[in-house]
Simulated scan of single mutants.
Amino acid sequence: MMLFWERGYEGTSMADLTHVMGLNPSSIYAAFGDKRALFQLVAKRYMELRAQYAVKALEEPTLERFTRALFDNTVAFLTTPGHPPTCMTLAGAVGCSLDATPARDLMTAIRKQNQVALRERLLKARKSGELPKEINVDDYTRYLSTIVAGLSIQAANGSTKAELKRTAQMALRHLGY
């Protein structure tokens, strides 16, 4: 997982995988299928084990607490020692060649699933009266997703935890929190 996360789908070769996993290529193919199948398993594991920061935020009872937790959890995740300073769904398959279209499509599907969960949380806020009716839920969903993705890009660019926190705080102020 770490190799795909650090290098992306295309940047990770079978030779890299055999070295890190301590297996020969035939054992990897026998156990996981091809590189694409292994990447799919890795993406699933990443979502289940590592990328729970947004899921935890969704559990917050109010829109403000959810939004604060979303940004705080994202910054904490991106600056966790021992893993790359970016989200695998962004770095894993963005800018892939046509040969890697399935990997790119998988990462896109995961990001879209995340947006659906975010949209559902915003609809809940609309029903409770926390999100004004004049705010377009789809636009707001894309806006929050863009901020979270932007934090990931800035982390990959080398922004520090303090810088990311200040960026998140600025976004919160612009959102009225």
Rank of each mutant, 00 (worst) to 15 (best):
K165F: 03
H174D: 08
L49V: 10
H19G: 07
D72W: 04
H83N: 14
P84M: 05
T167I: 15
A31Q: 14
L58R: 14
H19F: 07
L58Y: 13
T160E: 09
F71Q: 12
A125T: 01
T108N: 10
I110H: 00
R121S: 07
T86K: 11
R173D: 13
S152A: 15
M2Y: 06
Y53C: 06
T146M: 09
K35F: 06
R126S: 03
T86W: 15
Q113Y: 11
T167Y: 12
K127T: 02
T167R: 14
K165M: 12
P132W: 00
K124T: 10
K161R: 14
A91P: 00
L41K: 04
P132R: 07
A117N: 08
K56Y: 09
G129V: 10
M47Y: 00
Y177G: 03
V137W: 10
T18M: 03
D34E: 13
L172Y: 01
F32E: 02
E10N: 07
R119K: 09
V137I: 13
Q169K: 12
L98V: 14
M88N: 09
M107I: 07
V137T: 08
Y143A: 12
G82C: 12
A156D: 14
V55Q: 12
M2K: 03
R36P: 04
A168G: 06
M107Y: 02
A69N: 11
D105K: 02
Q113V: 00
Q169P: 03
K35G: 02
A15S: 10
A156Q: 15
D16W: 05
R7E: 03
T108I: 09
L49C: 09
S159G: 01
L49T: 11
A149R: 07
K127F: 10
A51L: 00
A57F: 07
T80S: 15
F4S: 03
Q113G: 08
Y140P: 00
A171D: 05
F4R: 00
R126A: 11
A51Y: 01
F77Q: 08
P81W: 01
L131E: 07
N73Y: 07
P132Y: 01
S145F: 02
K127H: 11
K165T: 12
K124C: 07
A30P: 00
T86L: 13
F77H: 12
A155D: 08
P61D: 13
N73G: 12
S145R: 05
I147E: 04
I147R: 06
E163G: 11
A91L: 10
A91D: 05
V116Y: 03
P25I: 09
Y53E: 10
G11W: 05
V148K: 04
P25S: 07
L98F: 15
L63M: 15
T86M: 14
E163M: 04
A162V: 13
Y140Q: 13
G176P: 01
A93R: 03
R65L: 15
C87V: 04
D139M: 13
Q40E: 12
L63G: 08
A162P: 12
T101D: 15
A15L: 06
N157C: 13
I153W: 15
G33F: 05
I147Y: 09
A91F: 09
T12A: 06
A93E: 13
L63I: 12
L23T: 02
E48R: 13
A15C: 00
P81C: 10
K112D: 14
T79H: 15
T146K: 02
M88Q: 08
P81V: 12
E10I: 00
G22M: 01
K124F: 08
I28W: 03
A51V: 01
A93M: 11
A109C: 08
M2F: 10
T67I: 05
